[in-house]
Amino acid sequence: MSARAVDPRRDPIQPGPTDPVTITFEGREYVGVRGQSVAGVLLANNVLDWRTTSTRHEPRGLFCGIGVCFDCVVTVDGQRDVRACQRTARDGAQVERQHDELPRRVEEAGS
């Protein structure tokens, strides 16, 4: 286990009761705390990457955490290019990995 939610029983802020929120990513359900971002729910479940880059096909996830770097963009309920660190997770949200292929030459793409 690496990335994870703080254990509420050991949290020095003495958290009150919270409500769960469930999202789906790549066919699996992940439970987080209501009010968390999409990135927060995924990280709480030790999911670190949710985008594949175009050129090197490498995994990416959260980087700057404050909406500046756009590394964490993901598709939410069919809408592309949503920053996972900025979008609050809604119950039942369908989150999909974003992988934008580079454009192919017309000759290769044809037929």
């Binding site: 670190l48 955490g65 660190c85």
Partner: peptide, 19 residues
């Protein structure tokens, strides 16, 4: 994945209670 800016680590800790 797993490399963050220092600010991201703090934002996740303070704003979401995530390590």
């Amino acid at each position: 994945p797993g490399v963050f800016t220092a600010g991201a680590a703090q934002a996740m800790a303070k704003g979401e209670r995530i390590a």
